[in-house]
Write a protein that binds this DNA or RNA. Sequence first.
RNA 1: GGAGAGAUGGCAGAGUGGUUGAAUGCGGCGGUCUCGAAAACCGUUGUUCCGCUAUCGUGGAACCGGGGGUUCGAAUCCCCCUCUCUCCGCCA
Length: 423
Amino acid sequence: MLSIPFIRENKSEVIKRLAIKNFNHTGLIEEVLQLDDRRRSIQRESDETLAEANQLAKQIGVLYKSGKAQEASALKESSVALKEKARKLNEELEQVKNQLADKMVEIPNLPHSSVPAGRTSDENICVYEEGNKPNLHEGALPHWDLITKYKLIDFELGNKVTGAGFPIYTGKGARLQRALINFFLDEAIAAGYHEVQPPLLVNEASAYGTGQLPDKEGQMYTIGLDNLYLIPTAEVPVTNIFRDVILAESELPVRTTAYSNCFRREAGSWGKHVRGLNRLHQFDKVEIVEIAHPAQSYEVLESMKTHVMKLLQKLKLPFRILKLCGGDISFTSALTFDFEVYSAAQQMWLEVSSVSNFEAYQANRMKLRFRDKEGNIQTAHTLNGSALALPRVVAALLENNQDAYGINLPEVLHPYTGFARIE
RNA sequence: GGAGAGAUGGCAGAGUGGUUGAAUGCGGCGGUCUCGAAAACCGUUGUUCCGCUAUCGUGGAACCGGGGGUUCGAAUCCCCCUCUCUCCGCCA
């Protein structure tokens, strides 16, 4: 969330910037500031009352010790009254705090000044494009047909065992998954990221910390009995490692990578866009997460982009980078770049990575801070990106590298797969 | 799942109703000494909120796993919850 002092000091700027995200609920900003005023005045009154009560308690203690029980009991009465007053104030304070918290989570992160206005993904701006779209042979197949032809993934079987969107990878298909995961992890480690293997289930506090809760609950699978959530991305457990942590400035940036399964309930649209590997309920992804100094977070964002670019270059996939417009950027993000690979048989761009700077938005929520050289505590910035999500990479690899008799895999993967070609 | 023990500051570990935000040790930071370092010695060392202050600061409130209760007063007593450890059971 945003910080209230920041909103107070930059109100018109906040309103202006939020408009880029098509957020025009100016009333909410006012409400927040008013609630905060109330919070502060109640806080003050409560503190004063308690201070008085503490004074009395000390006096009573002294009186008892010196044997003046009578005087002490006289003071007790006013002490009881003060306590009652403090209790009421505290109740009120809690109420106001809760209201304030509820309002605060409704305010999205401010977009970075470079974020273009826009409503839909059509208004995203392509900032970079690389690689040639391959010329496929006559009769080239979309990946879902290739998958069947070469027995790489069994959607029907996954359907039987679990349901739609939970494919079963088989044979070379399974091996390719494992190869990509290892390749991505090795590349991340080589780039200086520290590998962790997080839990696939998180508690409520973690889901809240990264912003999945309170309003995106429907996108996650929940374990009601134990009040846990299946992670939609490793971003959630990995970023939450740093919840309620005060880092030393010298530790920044903290660079972490993790492979995980990802679970998403999101029921998509129909047709081509969700066919085959285009959209799944369970998929694999290697994620990179960084905790950065506020002054450096945009350099870090660039380095994350570079890392993702290198992966796609090594896989020899044509790709482009989009800067998301205000309407397409997520609630919590300040600046997001999407990476899309060209899937030649579908003749479609597929999103394989999303790299974002959340600035202090997540960090404020989860109290992720660092102590600067002067000893002051500051909120850190958080960033993350996919490096990469597997299914659509697989789709593009299969489609783009097919010939009439099989599929050639990019060289970098050969040591991982143990085979160069699928036939 | 059953039985028992426990949860205190960055860590270890005292503290069982009254100036205790909390002894002591370690670590961290600053200094003395040194060409420099180590050792030794001295000093310092938590977080959040509210106020005052241009700044260094400073006054107040809260926090000893979480929530509630008793009391004029709770780290300390009572209740509930969570978690950890040990033993048993089960088990990849």
